[in-house]
Design a protein around this nucleic acid. Structure first.
Lengths: 337, 337
DNA sequence: CTTAGCTATTGGATCGTTCCAATTCCAGTG
DNA sequence: CACTGGAATTGGAACGATCCAATAGCTAAG
């Protein structure tokens, strides 16, 4: 295979110096329009492709942002990842998306690989567990790093954290269910002890406590399969429960599928609210009420904050909470749309 | 911010030359164990991080593979992307995942950006339309490029293509539905004219033709929303239809939701088969029959083929088809599991 | 006609690695 | 003790861009 052409080849062909070609590449307005045109034509003719590695070697910044996600298969995270990528692309930054698959070791490798590739910032929704030293090391690089949607369980204060105001969402969901007439509201899903589980439960717990109601909570993985399993558990062990707030929409959808399987309708008899308001929520039957997190907007905000940090050195506040919104649908109101 | 340490700093600290440090980095067994240890300690002490950009500048290969996906939000593609990433990670390659969001222009930009970043190979599930010259240019780079799951609509023969044997899957689905007693089988979803739509329809069409049955096809976007809409259309305009093969599981799930909304049960009265067998298919209610594509296995095969190409220069066959399998579930058999 | 003051262009040094040929080291041999 | 040969180590060139200070080209003023 032949050598890829360099700016020297372009320069020779266009009859200018390499420096001029470099200026053209950088879009400097120093160069005369005719010269620029000649250079551009030469580039097109010999099929020149920019070598970013070489450029970065000399001039620090790479215009590359790393994104490490604990579970890219979860549509909520997929949506975040793609939205962030687009927001950053609009500003001329490329994004490297990687999936740690909840594997802390893999996560450490991915982060390392990204740093080696010279990312100028990192956004991470961390996997739990694993050596916290990964993060110490990361902090020592001085790179802008934001943890989003999930706080790491060690060294939580190393990097600014941005997420949603889940606690209010939880309160809204509980109040809404009680207004609809529900009395025994269970909480389903979420691994116990995790910060995010605590947050998403807190409003529910406070509301129930204020009313002196019993608290039924079934914890587990945040998957559709678990929701289905929990449905069985609720139906057999807690027949008095007449509503559920689910850790996320996947659990809620699984729960609804479980009820459907048992021939029990969702809506007026048993009310369900989820978290995240993924696209599927409104297309399920019955449509699923959910605490909506404007994830695309959140991704844009994250991009803006990250850019402010990278470009102007403006480190964001240590903790940021974006507002959430309850979207009532048939699964909690019983009213078809 | 202070300068990142280089191998020169490491060398100074360890009391060796930069060349020795470089050898250690490359894991050469030329260096004496004691020397290696000293170098490694020095690296740890001053917090050295490898600069891949500089390394790549000198020695072509980057160990970076680009992956461009037309719709990363589709769980099928998400699964493929994450599986491919893991398969490549196991071989020491990093993967850059990008989502073109069916935007050919964005796709061109992403491909360009990846080449600039020096990927040593590219896997692409192309968006439709857009300037075919992007691909000509890509072909001219001589990089190993594989198109997967979808053929680009121009210059289809530029790069090897790997996908599933959808035509057989379609035949299996049609035969299965007829064995279950269905007579009027509709095809729902898929944009008309697209190669993949043709493939997924072909077996259905042939089977119906052989039996002299009428063909009802409703084409449209491959989304849950479209499936829901199509359900209404089927119920009002084609009451004789008693089964449907859907372009993919998302459409099928939308269709089932639409039927549920109308109070029409899925299973014995109306049978549905989807394509892709996404995780949700078995967790939906009723569980969705689907033509299963072992996407994780496919991703592994793709990784292996790509590596053979990259490392040994072994270009894969121009067209590869992985086998598919029909997974009958309640949505087509009517039998609860 | 010279020259100041621009603008447009240029050559050389530089970034942090790898590669290569050359050198040093050292134990073993005659 | 000189010499040999292999292992371990080394210095310098190279990769392809950017950056900077210097220079060439040009216009308008003196």
């Amino acid at each position: 295979m032949i050598r890829r052409p360099t700016i020297l080849d372009v320069a020779a062909r266009a009859g200018v110096s390499k420096s001029t070609v470099s200026l053209v590449l950088q879009g400097s307005k120093q160069v005369r329009p005719e010269t620029r045109a000649a250079v551009e034509q030469a580039m097109a003719e010999i099929g020149y492709v920019y070598n970013r590695a070489a450029a970065n070697l000399r001039s620090a910044s790479v215009g590359l942002v790393g994104l490490v996600i604990n579970d890219l298969r979860n549509p909520f995270f997929t949506e975040f990842a793609t939205s962030l990528q687009m927001a950053l692309a609009a500003e001329g930054y490329a994004t490297v998306i990687a999936n740690s698959d909840e594997d802390a070791e893999l996560q450490a490798k991915l982060v390392g690989s990204m740093i080696e590739h010279g990312v100028s910032a990192l956004v991470i929704s961390p996997a739990y567990g694993g050596p916290g030293e990964t993060f110490d090391q990361l902090a020592r690089t001085g790179l802008p790093v934001m943890q989003v949607l999930r706080k790491m369980d060690e060294r939580t204060d190393l990097f600014p954290f941005a997420s949603f105001d889940y606690a209010s969402g939880s309160t809204m969901a509980a109040r809404h269910l009680m207004e609809q007439g529900a009395r025994n509201i269970a909480f389903v899903g979420g691994l116990p002890g995790r910060a995010i589980t605590r947050e998403r439960k807190s409003g529910w717990r406070d509301t129930l406590k204020a009313e002196g109601l019993a608290e039924v909570a079934i914890h587990g993985k945040s998957s559709r399969a678990f929701g289905m399993q929990a449905a069985g558990e609720l139906l057999s062990d807690h027949p008095e429960v007449d509503a559920a707030i689910c850790f996320n929409d996947l659990v809620a959808l699984g729960l609804m599928a479980g009820f459907a399987r048992a021939g029990r309708p969702i809506g007026a008899e048993f009310r369900v609210v989820g978290f995240d308001d993924i696209e599927e929520a409104q297309q399920a039957w019955p449509p699923l009420s959910s605490v909506a997190c404007d994830i695309a907007g959140f991704a844009r905000d994250t991009a803006a904050r990250l850019l402010a940090w990278m470009v102007e050195g403006q480190r964001p506040a240590p903790e940021l909470r974006s507002p959430v919104q309850l979207v009532p649908r048939m699964s909690s109101t019983g009213i078809p749309e």
